[in-house]
Design a binder for these strands. Sequence first.
DNA 1: TCCTTTATTGATAATGATTCTCATTATTAT
DNA 2: ATAATAATGAGAATCATTATCAATAAAGGA
Lengths: 149, 149
Amino acid sequence: MPGPRWRGNFKDRGHRMTGPRDAILDVLSKKQGHLTADDIFFEVRKLYSGIGIATVYRALDLFVRIGLVNKFDFGGGRSRYEFASKEEHHHHLVCKNCGRVIDYDSFLDEETELIKKIEAELSKKHYFKIDSHQLDFYGLCENCQKEVE
Amino acid sequence: MPGPRWRGNFKDRGHRMTGPRDAILDVLSKKQGHLTADDIFFEVRKLYSGIGIATVYRALDLFVRIGLVNKFDFGGGRSRYEFASKEEHHHHLVCKNCGRVIDYDSFLDEETELIKKIEAELSKKHYFKIDSHQLDFYGLCENCQKEVE
DNA sequence: TCCTTTATTGATAATGATTCTCATTATTAT
DNA sequence: ATAATAATGAGAATCATTATCAATAAAGGA
Ligand SMILES: [Mn+2]
Ligand SMILES: [Mn+2]
Ligand SMILES: [Zn+2]
Ligand SMILES: [Zn+2]
């Protein structure tokens, strides 16, 4: 009988809470960062050794669909996943050299305001129903600046 | 002797302007949109029938490195490319259902201002050297709203 | 123009991430 | 406990992108 912690999110839609899914959510909620499917796979095997990589992908896909997890594409060929529950919405700073990703939300007041305004304008102008956005800054992190110097 | 149109951008760095590269730039500068490597490959074969897909990838990589072309990851597993020369910087509206991507730059005044401010703040706070950013709004385009209704 | 140097190319194999298939197992509602 | 069926694991299959390597072509100088 897998942990009841996340049951609530599955009740309705006919999804079942299982051992593998619970273990994956456990990892996602504890490890912070922007994990690849493989990162998650290796961590989860400590909790649920028999799990297969396909199950990890299937579970992540489900979690993204129901809004429990955010999926990102920062370039580099691998998707990255982040636990969404309770977290504030935030934006990213991405190092083009080493791939490090930093979350930030310090400017969120002004940003949120402007972004709402843009959303309204774009929705009207292009008949788009906007439900999310992503703002990333790219550059070189502290370490990588030194290396390149 | 391949077209002299883009010669200027190659002079310095030891890169050679070749038939395949010229054909690829031709396609990129004429076809608008956010093309995949394969889109480009099929178009370029009309101009330069013997070209190989590896050459397309290599050329695109080079163009991105020297700033002639922008590369994007809107999700969906394939990178998308856009001719950068002369174009204004802009942001995107992406349909999560059909993948359509719309460029916009109407809000650029206010956006630019805020984004500069954020860049300055983030650079200082995180010791990051920021050189670009990407802002995408996700949702449903007009057509896809109808389908789902 | 001809030569030399070496960047570039095309074909193809290799890789890496993600998805699919399918027989087996586990979960849920009765 | 039983039936209905969602979920799983192993491995094959896909898909996009890279790496290899021998052959070719561009650039600059003689
Ligand atoms: Mn994040
Ligand atoms: Mn664009
Ligand atoms: Zn870095
Ligand atoms: Zn659409």
